[in-house]
Amino acid sequence: MGKKYKNPPIVEALCEFQFLPNQPWDITIPGILYEKIKDEFPVKQQQVGFGVAVKPGKAGMVLKPEIEFGPPRMQFFSKDKISLVQVGPDLLTVNHLRPYSTWKKFKPLILKIFGEYIVIANPKGVRQIRLRYINKIDFDQHKIELSDYFNYYPSIPSNLPQTYKTFQVTVEIPYNNERDTLRLSFATIIPEKPNVLSLLFDLDYVMILPESIVLDKLPDWLEDAHTAIENAFEACIKDKCRKLFEEVK
């Protein structure tokens, strides 16, 4: 059982499944899933992602950015817009935004939505699963000493200036004979308010070997993934950080 915080830094928790299809993507799947879950997730929305590609202009000389739109993804939100289900071609995601409740509540929700999807879409298997906890830690000051708060941060050679404005560190740690990987990313991000320092701590546990678990073993995989994330989170923060989150003892 992990530590409990009154003011946890979690801004989003999500579980994502990428499936190996049995047949070409059936566009009626999101609609059928919506019928099954609409009591809990009544607010539907279509999300069209955009990207920017740089292509030569008409004269063939000038490079100009162009908008490219991605395949649409259906999003089904709960009434309070705190949790949602996303469905796209061979993709299912269950997201929980702030305020995050508990793993005891989030895990059954993931399993329930996954169970509904499997019956409807009948995929051949799971290509990838990820359980991800995204944390945002705000400091009401411009400058902090990272080592006071964290055990995980960039290491700068001593003959270089030790003050830096932005950083981004990522490591990938293999788990379970490299079937899974835990990607720990720690970085500065855009603060929402002036005179605030915002840090992003992203813990992303991913099953990277396709079809390496059978579907009925998903509850065990989720439990392992959650334990690994929880342990990593606690290992990376110090008591000064726990004080910010107001640990409940």
């Binding site: 955009f50 590609a53 490219e68 997201n95």
Partner: peptide
């Protein structure tokens, strides 16, 4: 362009 495409298609985190 392929990098951008990969990025916007794959991101499932709302935040």
């Amino acid at each position: 362009p392929s990098n951008f495409s990969r990025n916007f298609e794959k991101e499932t985190s709302i935040f």
